[in-house]
Amino acid sequence: MVRLVDVPEPERSVIADLACPAYDDTPAVKPPPPGLRHVAIVSTAGFIVRGERPMLSNETGYRAIAADIGDGDILCSHVSTNFDRTGFQQDLNVMLPRDRLVELEREGCIGRAADTHYAFMGATSPPKLEDKARELGRSMLALGVNTVVLAPV
């Protein structure tokens, strides 16, 4: 199963019919050169740190996942049952490739892997995420992060 047409019904229609908000323009920042990129991952998997309150459906906030949080303490609270979790259960990097990002830093492909990555609840409609997304953006900039890899589920 690799393309939308291969997703079984009824989930295929749900995904295909999701209302996608229209944006008048596409803001595009001029990216820093590779060696100056300070990169964070922002996931929509609804990750939480073990012991935190799980995210709920339509939650608009985000959670921070610091580098010193072990893989076993990162849990997925996404509301949807319609994506595979067995890959994540075996290997966190299937959804949150933070180890790969550190490797790219060590090899000089990027300037720095961020100390903290972040997660939203992907089932929430995008306009409802705007305030918190902008807040997170400002927070990341204050920490020196200038580049974001957005990872879905």
Binding site: R3, L4, I15, A16, C20, P21, Y23, T26, P27, A28, V29, K30, P31, P32, R37, V42, T44, F120, G122, P126, P127, L129, E130, A133, R134, L136, G137, R138, M140, L141, V145, N146, T147, V148, V149, L150, A151, P152, V153
Partner: peptide
């Protein structure tokens, strides 16, 4: 996911999405 890209770029961060649903 795409909405987050719009908002984060608007705040000054360069973004790239790894996308599962092309549509």
């Amino acid at each position: 996911m795409s909405g987050l890209a719009h908002y984060l770029e608007d705040e000054g961060l360069a973004t790239v999405i790894v996308a599962l649903v092309r549509e």
